[in-house]
């Protein structure tokens, strides 16, 4: 590498680092986005350190201590109808929410991006076939598609990720297709093509990096939807396998004890609400920082 080239690389790295710093600064300055980031970090740390934070094994039953109130006998948030510690189940439930939230969105993003790129870049009949299929997939209400898939696939964490991930595919495909269409006739792409670059190089080195900002904003927003969908499926008894702690299944258990122990249903619902509000706030902040044009 010549000195000139090294200089350009160094300059690009400095610009990149500066941009990253400026993005982070913009996010931190936005109080709402900072709160959202705090909620997300708290959730991630809770999910990772669940075994350390939880005060009891989450699935350990003790019927002699069922339906204890908040703070009674060392149970921070009381116990459920099987005598399981609600705080510990809440902490482990964060793991399921994060796994499904990130896993389902990743699944939808990978498949959707691939389809969006093929559709937008190659166009023609590929575009028509893929986008018609996406139209068909979008004709199902999101949760209904997940319910139908779960009724066929059966309960389980991986199946939940797939069922929710499939519903995420059309959104990602549309976002990426739109971005590809907007850049594919740009001069720099034409120049790269005329220099003999292969399609794969053009797509991965030039087209996709330009789709990154809207993609990351859309992915962040989708995580909130995926977390609510997982909770909905578990609430309906179609999510993760019992007795695995999930916020949705905790709500389902609590529904039958509203009179005796209302906090059994209140606490997991609040956890879902705060998490989703946090992710939405962070997503809004990220959108404003990365791409102000997308602001609604």
């Amino acid at each position: 590498m010549s000195t000139g080239q090294q200089g350009i690389v160094l300059e690009q790295t400095q610009v990149k680092t500066k941009n990253e710093h400026s993005l982070f600064r913009k996010l931190i300055r936005n109080r709402f986005a900072a709160f959202g980031l705090f909620v997300i970090l708290l959730l991630i740390l809770t999910a990772i350190f669940a075994p350390v934070i939880a005060t009891y094994p989450p699935n350990k039953m003790n019927v002699t201590k069922s339906l204890l109130g908040i703070g009674v006998e060392g149970h921070i948030l009381g116990t459920d109808n099987y005598g399981r510690d609600i705080f510990s189940r809440l902490v482990y439930g964060a793991r399921i929410s994060m796994l499904v939230g990130i896993g389902a969105v990743l699944f939808g993003a990978v498949v959707g991006t691939l389809l969006g790129v093929i559709s937008g870049y190659f166009g023609g009949k590929w575009d028509s076939i893929i986008m018609r299929f996406m139209d068909g997939l979008s004709a199902f209400p999101f949760i209904l598609l997940a319910i139908t898939l779960m009724s066929v696939l059966g309960q389980g964490l991986v199946n939940v990720i797939i069922a929710i991930g499939v519903g995420n595919i059309p959104g990602f495909a549309r976002v990426v297709r739109g971005q590809v269409l907007s850049v594919k006739h740009s001069e720099y792409i034409e120049v790269t093509r005329s220099l003999g670059a292969k399609h794969s190089r053009i797509i991965f080195h030039h087209v996709l990096p330009n789709s990154f900002a809207p993609l990351i904003v859309y992915a962040t927003m989708s995580i909130a939807g995926a977390i609510i969908s997982e909770a909905s499926l578990s609430f309906l008894g179609l999510g993760v396998q019992p007795p695995t702690a999930s916020w949705g299944s905790m709500l389902q258990d609590g529904k039958d004890f509203l009179v005796l122990n209302p906090h059994m249903a209140t606490i997991p619902g609040l956890a879902i609400l705060i998490t989703v509000v946090g992710i939405n706030l962070f997503g809004d902040g990220l959108r404003d920082a990365l791409d102000p044009k997308m602001k609604a």
Partner: peptide
């Protein structure tokens, strides 16, 4: 951001 199944339960409560 509201999980409507939770809101439903809270309304009942």
């Amino acid at each position: 951001s509201m999980p409507i199944f939770w809101l439903g339960i809270m309304l009942v409560l």
